[in-house]
Simulated assay, not measured.
Amino acid sequence: MNRSLILTNRLLSGAIAATILAGSLVTGAAGAALAAPPPSSGRSTTVVPDPFVERIGGADRFAVSAAISAHTFEPMVPVVYIASGEVFPDALSASAAAGAEGGVVLLTKRDAIPTPVATELRRLKPQRIVVLGGSDTVAPEVETALRAFSTMVDRIAGADRFAVSARVSASVFGSHRPVAYIASGSVYPDALSGSAAAGRLGGPVLLVGKDAIPTLVADELRRLAPAKIVVLGGVNTISETVKAELQTMGTTSRIDGVDRFAVSAAISAGVFPPGVPTVYVASGAGYADALSGGAAAIANAGPVLLVTADTVPGAVAAELDRLKPRRIVVLGGPSSISDSTMEKLRTYLRR
């Protein structure tokens, strides 16, 4: 596919995303506007857009989830993963799995499919839908309703978040993976950036406790036999005892830092080269926007970096300086990442 066609597809997808957001506004919620990339000149020659920063926002986390998908993916995707937007654990492993299959992550309420998500599912026409988690997080009625959008709807559930994590991995990844990323199942920030890195390298994200590796996760690691195991976060989230046990399963290293922002930057620095085309930026204070953003980042071969609402932390600023992307995609509305922070992000674009 030539670059002109790629750009045209992105513009069309951006228009669809804007339609979804407009629909949300009609219902009475105020969503952030979606800034589309610079338009094509209409010539037959290849058009490379100037560097730009854009925002994918929406009335709520569900509208943002749908808009991210619409901005990134064409209809007839092979798979859509449906995860709770009200709790984070099941979706943490979903992005790497979706990325391995060229698929999407969309968020739902427990008892109903939000209207923007239903609209996006209708557009996507997925070949398969996979519901993540048990009936306590996504009700059977929602699973039934999803059959209106695909003839194949499955559920991956388990006794807890760790079992779901292991089963997601087992359903997608073969053995002898190049890497397996290990993240806390109790807190979300490290896995948000880890998913994009895992997707680039072709490995899963698996969840553990602070002081123990659940049996199903240990079994899955032995099956995967990864070339390396990467622990995400410091000893306050995953102990040295767990790291030592992981070392018995394969070569193990840790990526940590003084805070979630430093960890985010270090994950990116270990995987993504300078000049990467696109960087996704999400709030480090909430999980929802980055859950769907991870699959989009994998599709565009870019990292997910975390910021605060009003600042670009120093470690992230240094990583953006190194990456020098042509495009930065801000996930979420101004309450998550302010307009002033968007302006700061423009200074890191490759000119």
Score class of each variant (00 low, 15 high):
Pro114Leu: 05
Pro114Asp: 08
Thr115Lys: 13
Pro116Gln: 10
Val117Gly: 06
Thr119Leu: 12
Thr119Tyr: 01
Thr119His: 12
Glu120Asp: 08
Leu121Asp: 09
Arg122Trp: 08
Arg122Ser: 15
Arg123Ala: 06
Arg123Pro: 06
Arg123Lys: 11
Leu124Asn: 08
Lys125Met: 07
Pro126Gln: 03
Pro126Thr: 05
Pro126Asn: 10
Pro126Ile: 02
Gln127Asn: 13
Arg128Cys: 07
Arg128Glu: 15
Arg128Asn: 09
Ile129His: 06
Val130Tyr: 02
Val130His: 08
Val130Phe: 10
Val131Trp: 07
Val131Phe: 01
Val131Gln: 03
Val131Ala: 04
Val131Met: 06
Gly134Arg: 11
Ser135Arg: 14
Ser135Ala: 14
Ser135Met: 07
Ser135His: 08
Asp136His: 13
Asp136Gln: 13
Thr137Glu: 13
Val138Arg: 08
Val138Phe: 07
Ala139Ile: 12
Ala139Met: 07
Ala139Thr: 14
Pro140Gly: 11
Pro140Met: 12
Glu141Phe: 13
Glu141His: 14
Glu141Gly: 15
Val142Tyr: 11
Val142Trp: 13
Glu143Ser: 14
Glu143Trp: 06
Glu143Leu: 13
Thr144Ala: 15
Ala145Gly: 00
Ala145Phe: 08
Ala145Pro: 00
Ala145Arg: 12
Ala145Val: 06
Arg147Glu: 14
Arg147Gly: 14
Arg147His: 14
Ala148Val: 07
Phe149Ile: 02
Phe149Pro: 01
Ser150Gln: 08
Ser150Val: 03
Thr151Asp: 13
Met152Arg: 15
Val153Trp: 03
Asp154Met: 10
Arg155Asn: 10
Arg155Thr: 10
Ile156Leu: 11
Ile156Gly: 06
Ala157Met: 03
Gly158Gln: 08
Ala159Lys: 09
Ala159Trp: 02
Ala159Val: 04
Asp160Glu: 02
Asp160Tyr: 05
Arg161Thr: 05
Ala163Met: 10
Ala163Ile: 02
Val164Cys: 04
Val164Asp: 02
Val164Pro: 04
Val164Gly: 07
Ser165Tyr: 00
Ala166Asp: 00
Arg167Trp: 01
Val168Tyr: 04
Val168Gln: 06
Ser169Met: 06
Ser171Gln: 09
Ser171Tyr: 10
Ser171Arg: 12
Ser171Met: 05
Val172Ser: 07
Val172Ala: 08
Phe173Lys: 09
Phe173His: 10
Gly174Gln: 09
Ser175Asn: 13
Ser175Lys: 14
His176Met: 13
Arg177Ile: 05
Arg177Leu: 11
Arg177Lys: 14
Pro178Val: 09
Val179Tyr: 01
Val179Asp: 09
Val179Cys: 11
Ala180Trp: 03
Ala183Trp: 08
Ser186Ile: 09
Pro189Val: 00
Pro189Cys: 08
Asp190Ser: 00
Ala191Asp: 07
Gly194Cys: 04
Ser195Trp: 00
Ser195Gly: 15
Ser195Gln: 12
Ala196Phe: 04
Ala196Leu: 00
Ala197Asn: 02
Ala198Gln: 01
Ala198Trp: 02
Gly199Lys: 04
Leu201Gln: 13
Leu201Val: 00
Gly203Asp: 00
Gly203Glu: 01
Pro204Gly: 03
Leu206Met: 13
Leu206Tyr: 02
Leu207Arg: 00
